[in-house]
Write a protein that binds this DNA or RNA. Structure first.
Length: 778
DNA sequence: GATTGTGAGGTTTTT
DNA sequence: CCTCACAATC
């Protein structure tokens, strides 16, 4: 394939010509000025980045500590460091700066943040903490949380921050939002706390405003910046990069606009698409040869992504063998689907595939439970990535809150979390008064506590004055206890400190006293936390660094879902988002249905997001090396209701000869299956996305019949008739129907019952479950 | 002041 | 289906 790129011989010893193809070598050999690498799925992107870094160090003699590589997850950072260790030796690799935007920023802010008035002991507030801050802001402003849902307020604030707009630059019709934003920021600052966006925003301020020369100092740190997954950077991150490389412009960005899937998090695909505009002299390299997947998988993926609008032209190809057809399996419901998934996994294992080479993907976490249950029943080892995280469990959050408020007494959110945990008689009324007192004095809650606990009756008098007479003793003893513990921070190993905290605060005693299965589990989790702290200390010792409590807390705050992924011999369950950057021998992509993928939450309109969903599907497909099995279910119980879904529109875009259309044995025999066939809700559901070519190109597939399955001779992509009405009702989601008593309404979902039934939303009357025969079309 | 129960509301994807 | 806020009760 002609690539239009002059091949450079690698200028560097350890890498032989054979190890890199010509565009790869071109990118690796580039050593000065801006470089943009479009890296198609499976095109050896990580190889290029690591080799380029190795080349800079070994050949261009750049000291490793002057290179900053930004990755998307901590796990990716660790892997990159490992690979570089193999290329350069651990000694040199350890000196490199490799990390996420957030982790790197946190690290740099600890050293330079004081120029902006950010103390070294700042804490990072997670979403829960942030919500607590918004709630407090709402209360301070006397606003109704029904009118200003904290979640939405936060989303609004974060959107502003991602674009680097403060409350004063905010444009919003509602002045209260601005006030909330301002109060939120003030509270964070008062608590010596930052949110995720602040980590980036504060770095940009340091770099651009150069307080106390901190920006210049930062800029002098690095000679080269490399960014992976550049398509998923947001405006603030891009500005961070531009500010950093202002003087030398040695910025290498690597990414694939086809794999941009984090728009909802502020990512702007225009950063990569328009990179040439900001850096007109950028050298552009396209990596287009896929080494990962079979030709069928690559062509199927292309079928989906080629219908994307505005993509940078790319020509992904592979020299790999055609491989097996992709199974497109119709299933009856999510249980039937899960059963098929497990059967496929068992079959693969029987053929000798290592479970760690198998992954099950889904669009939303809520889909994981059924699959998990069936896997457990079948004794298949598995791990779930993401979902409810270890660190989000109440007991873990409590323990961490103790540790955080010990390192940073100003952190009110943490103090409020632990002041009455375990119960020590400091109730809502007392807290309300304490908060009021602290607000009036404009001090943190810890400081307020200190003032109320002052000796010789001064504090007691004050406490009485603000209505805290009876609680004063309890507050004082809590304060004393914390002061005692705080004296040990830094003097003891973090893991020992945790043990002491849990003992002295009475948390362990309280849990032991509970003596329930649940409290047992909590105790075990706390033991787990302690061992994770211990691991951290061991790691730090191995790296020759001090094991600071702050360091551990920071790591916990910035931990990502995939970071927790173990390399054990287990099947991996994760969302498609979590799968970015990974690859597996066998991928089972589940829930490929209308409304699930592309996912439409509650609002039926808006094909605005379809572009991103399309890219998400592309990412999912291209994770598979040899075998891809895609399933969809006729009905799916999710979020407490039953949804009806025809196959995802994306399936019809995969070329006919890349797929084998199948159905599980349970599916067509089911009542629901028959019902859907007969009523042709299936056909109705797929009409809007049907491409003219899709029908034409889908010659009847002749798939092999798998054991335990019956091939159903039914081309479900063929347009099986235009009429969707049988018995007078088109029973698909969104259909308008009329009921004799309730009037006109809209079908919300199909319900599994003895006969066809649906949930219908009637204006002003809410949703009702109604048998289909009582309805007629509107 | 703590504990328990009830109801309502909201449900994507995550550093 | 889950979480969270609040009310009722001890």
């Amino acid at each position: 394939m002609a690539l239009g790129v002059t091949p450079h011989a690698p200028v560097w010893g350890p890498v032989s010509d054979a190890e890199l193809n010509s565009p790869q070598a071109d990118a690796v050999a580039h050593t000065s000025g801006p470089l943009l690498v479009f890296a198609g799925a499976g095109s050896g992107k990580t190889r290029v980045i690591t080799y380029r870094i190795a080349n800079l160090v070994a050949c261009a003699r750049v000291p490793p500590h002057r290179i900053l590589a930004v990755t998307f997850t901590n796990k990716a950072a660790g892997e990159m460091r490992d690979r570089l260790g193999r290329l350069l030796g651990d000694e040199l690799a350890r000196e490199l700066w490799v990390g996420t935007f957030h982790a790197t920023s946190a690290k740099l802010l600890r050293r330079h943040g004081e120029a902006l008035g950010l103390p070294k002991n700042f804490v990072i507030y997670d979403t829960d903490d942030q919500k607590a801050v918004v709630n407090r802001a709402l209360r301070a402003l006397d606003l109704d949380e029904k009118r200003y849902p904290p979640r939405q307020c936060l989303a609004r604030i974060h959107k502003e921050k991602q674009e680097l707009r403060g409350p004063d630059e905010m444009e919003d019709g509602d002045p209260w939002i601005v006030k909330i934003y301002r109060a939120y920021d003030e509270q964070l600052r008062a608590a010596n706390a930052v949110d995720f966006e602040d980590l980036i925003g504060l770095m940009v301020r340091l770099l651009e405003e150069n307080p106390a020369g901190a920006g210049d100092a930062l800029r002098r740190r690095f000679d080269y910046l490399l960014v992976d997954e550049f398509q998923d950077t947001n405006a603030a991150q891009y500005r961070f990069l531009k500010a950093f490389v202002r003087d030398h412009r040695n910025l290498c960005v690597v990414g694939d606009d086809d794999q941009s899937i984090y728009r909802w998090r502020g990512a702007d695909v225009r950063n990569i698409r328009g990179f040439k505009h900001d850096f007109p002299d950028a050298h552009v390299v396209k990596l287009e040869q896929n080494y990962r997947s079979t030709a069928r998988i690559v062509r199927a993926a292309l079928g989906v992504i080629e219908r994307s609008r505005e993509r940078v032209p790319k020509d992904l190809w592979t020299a790999n063998a055609a491989g097996a057809p992709i199974d497109l399996v119709a299933t009856r419901d999510e249980r039937d689907e899960a059963a098929h998934v497990v059967a496929t996994i068992q079959e693969a294992r029987a053929r000798g595939v290592d479970p760690k080479e198998i992954a099950v993907f889904y669009r939303v976490h809520a889909q994981s439970r059924v699959i998990e249950e069936v896997l457990r029943a079948a004794n298949v080892p598995y791990q779930i990535v993401g979902g409810t995280k270890f660190y989000e469990r109440a007991e873990i959050k409590n323990a961490l809150a103790y540790l955080r408020v010990l390192t940073n007494p100003a952190s009110d959110v943490d103090l409020l979390r632990v002041i009455n945990t375990p119960a020590r008689g400091i109730g809502a009324t007392s807290l309300e008064r304490l908060v009021a007192f602290a607000d009036a004095e404009r001090v943190s809650l810890s400081t307020a506590l200190g003032q109320l606990a002052e000796p010789r009756g001064v504090g007691a008098a004050r406490a009485k004055a603000v209505g805290l007479g009876t609680a004063a003793g309890k507050l004082a003893s809590f304060h004393e206890m914390m002061a005692g513990l705080r004296a040990k921070v830094g003097a003891e190993r973090p893991s020992d400190l945790l043990g002491e905290v849990l003992e002295r605060t009475g948390y362990l005693i309280a849990l032991r006293a509970e003596n329930t299965a649940e409290s047992e589990a909590r105790l075990e989790n706390l033991a787990e936390l302690k061992s994770s702290l211990f691991d951290y200390e061991q790691e730090a010792a191995a790296a020759g660094e001090p094991a600071s409590l702050e360091g551990y807390l920071e790591r916990v705050s910035l931990q990502s879902d995939v970071d927790g992924m173990k390399d054990a011999s287990r099947v991996t369950l994760m969302t498609v988002h979590g799968a970015k950057g990974l690859e597996f021998e066998l991928v089972l992509l589940t829930g490929m249905e209308q409304d699930m993928f592309p996912y439409r939450g509650m609002n039926p309109s808006g094909d605005h997001e379809v572009e991103e969903e399309r890219r998400l599907a592309y990412v999912a497909i291209t994770r598979a090396r040899s075998r891809l099995v895609i399933t969809h279910a006729d009905t799916r119980q999710i979020f407490g209701t039953t949804r009806l879904g025809g196959p995802s529109p994306f399936l019809a875009e995969m070329p006919a000869d890349t797929v084998a259309v199948k159905a599980t044995a349970g599916r067509s025999a089911s009542a629901v299956g028959r019902f859907i066939d007969r009523d042709d809700a299936y056909g109705q559901a797929r009409r809007p996305w049907q491409h003219p070519q899709a029908t034409a190109r889908h010659a009847p597939a002749a798939p092999a019949v798998e054991p335990g399955e019956r091939y159903v001779d039914r081309e479900f992509f063929a347009d099986s008739g235009s009429g969707a009405e049988e018995g007078g009702v088109g029973l698909h989601r969104g259909a308008r129907v009329v009921h004799a008593q309730f009037g006109e309404g809209e079908v919300r979902s199909v319900v599994q019952a003895s006969e066809p039934a649906v949930v219908v939303a009637f204006p002003g009357r809410g949703e009702k479950k109604i048998l289909a025969r009582f309805l007629r079309p509107a």
